[in-house]
């Protein structure tokens, strides 16, 4: 697709001054976009033009720009992080689009993720879920000697796969129910099988799920859209693990 030719694009971007204002879509055009730019770099170009014109630049979240921080959160043409699988918006390149294409850019939409400004949403609901139980209570001290605690390879791999979650919220954004199950499942699956996390697994499941429900996220109906769109390709397996942990925790429920 990429032949190095510059592209002209028409963008439809959600603009909202602050949390309490009503927002609206505004049309923009960006010209001479290199196919080698990342999606965020394309927005940088747009913002430079807006600043020169004396207009308010488009606010969007970004930090590492290498797909590990989970900051970027753009709903691009009807999909979180755009049309490619397994990438964040910062890892998405303009070669995935074609000259003259129109692109709709929206913030994550969920009541639990209120818009702060333009394309930036408040994802502190995730922080409160982690505070409710996504941790290990004991001080784990300094780095332990290798192999002093034996963990099966399966368990390590399972925990590491789940630990790849960067908390970007694409799962909530894409879910028709705005369910946070993939995020919460990943955190529960990450800790439940490791010797450090296992002792608190039941309390953790109860408290994190209670907080998840309280934050106003919907429930999982197994459409599997979250796993399909997760930039870290976290599997549906973690949601099933979350349910199993919750079912096992029933005896500790009060």
């Amino acid at each position: 697709m990429s032949n190095g030719k510059k592209m002209n694009l028409s963008l439809k971007i959600w603009r909202q001054a602050d949390k309490n204002s009503a927002g609206e879509f505004k049309d923009y055009t960006v010209n001479n976009v290199s196919p080698d730019m990342s999606f965020l770099e394309m927005l940088d170009v747009l913002n430079e033009e807006l600043i020169i014109k004396g207009e308010e630049p488009v606010a969007f979240d970004h930090d590492c720009r290498e797909g590990i921080c989970g900051s970027c959160s753009l709903y691009i043409n009807g999909r979180p992080h755009g049309p490619k699988r397994g990438v964040t918006a910062c890892q998405l390149h303009m070669r995935s689009f074609h000259d003259g294409q129109s692109i709709v850019i929206e913030p994550w939409r969920a009541n639990a993720f209120p818009v702060v400004k333009d394309l930036i949403v408040d994802r502190s609901a995730f922080d409160r879920i982690i505070t409710a139980g996504g941790f290990v209570s004991v001080n784990s001290g300094g780095a332990a000697d290798a192999n002093s605690i034996l963990i099966s390879k399966d368990d390590v791999e399972y925990a590491l796969d789940a630990s790849q979650c960067i908390g970007c919220g694409a799962c909530v954004a894409v879910c028709k129910n705005s369910s946070a199950s993939l995020f919460v499942g990943a955190k529960i699956a990450h800790l439940s099988r490791l010797p450090q996390g296992s002792p608190e697994r039941h309390k953790r499941a109860i408290n994190m799920i209670k907080q998840m429900d309280k934050e106003g996220f919907g429930s999982c109906t197994n459409t599997e859209a979250c796993a399909a769109e997760c930039p870290k390709e976290i599997s549906m397996d973690v949601i099933v693990t979350m349910r199993k942990e919750y079912m096992k925790a029933i005896k500790e429920m009060e």
């Binding site: 439809k12 959600w14 879509f25 709903y75 043409n77 009807g78 999909r79 049309p83 709709v104 929206e106 939409r109 969920a110 009541n111 639990a112 894409v174 028709k176 129910n177 705005s178 369910s179 106003g216 996220f217 919907g218 429930s219 109906t221 197994n222 459409t223 599997e224 859209a225 399909a228 769109e229």
Partner: peptide
């Protein structure tokens, strides 16, 4: 009840949703 709670979790809908890219029609 589940449907009503789940719908209430998103008051402002997306302008553009490409649902067929990530889930089956039956599940929705």
């Amino acid at each position: 009840r589940i449907t009503s709670i789940n719908r209430k979790a998103r008051n402002i809908k997306y302008k553009k949703v490409d649902a067929s890219a990530n889930s089956t029609f039956f599940s929705r």
